[in-house]
Amino acid sequence: MMLEFFFTRGLRALATLLLIVTITFVVLRLSGDPAINILGLDASDEAIREFRRSWGLDQSIWVQYVRYLQAVIEGNLGRSMLDGRSAVDAVIERLPATLSIMVPGFVLQLVVGIPAGILSALRRNTWLDRLVMTSSVVCFTMPGFVFALLLVMVFAVTLHWLPSGGAGTLAHLVLPVLTMGFFGAATLARFTRSAVVDVLGQPHIRAATLRGIPRRRIVLLHVVPNAALPVVTIIGLMLGGLVAGAVITESVFSWPGIGRLLVTSVASRDLAVVQTILLMVGTAMVLANFCVDLAYGFLDPRLRHGQGNSANKG
């Protein structure tokens, strides 16, 4: 029976990836001509025709699509139209740079967002709660690039403490990581707070107090594990936001990562590279959501056991 579960989940994942490939293909192919985007407006007709022929762009869109799909299924993600390099290589080369801001950024989101949310819920309607929630709203509503520019203004332009862009030293990491982290932390703080407030109102928490269980123990062993379920859902969804955040952050700080690669590739309609990035992101998302589903079963025995006493009502 477990097999059935993995089988359906696998099929659904494949369908998702196919959808990603198709939508990217259609959008990129219909929105502009890579030949003109790469060779420039003043390229000769001859060069453009040659470019189209060599990349198969002179075929009908259906033929191109089927060919592309075939290649992807065979594991060949194609070459970059810009420099003829393998798309996978081009992406993998940029991966470490992106991970070096994404992972610390994500960790920052978790270590700031979750405790802030819990604290806020436990000290509901105090100055601390208001402080956390106000700053969360500010981070939440401010567009990512504005926040990034603000950081640059304060720490690079005015205080000269940190570089405003580029990569190389640890100091270069600080502002991009802060940008990546705070946006998600704000979302997470809000969701954690409402999840914890919800659990605090459940009868079994009062019952635990009445049994004489100390407050600290109630919070750690009764409130937090119960609130984890909705929070984990949000974390799974936030991974998508992380990619969007990387695109913005890397552009603002001229960070040589996948986000910037994506921007330049889309601008030149370099399909193979865009597809490779999106497939990678898609796979990561599918895996992340699969982990979230597994986490549900781990966190909540009611889901693990299905509907134990479904036949309670006559």
Partner: peptide, 17 residues
């Protein structure tokens, strides 16, 4: 038709309501 046991994957059996 209901799940017979505790597990998510246990087979379905008829319940005579």
């Amino acid at each position: 038709s209901v799940r017979s046991g505790a597990g998510l994957f246990s087979p379905r059996i008829p319940l005579k309501a």
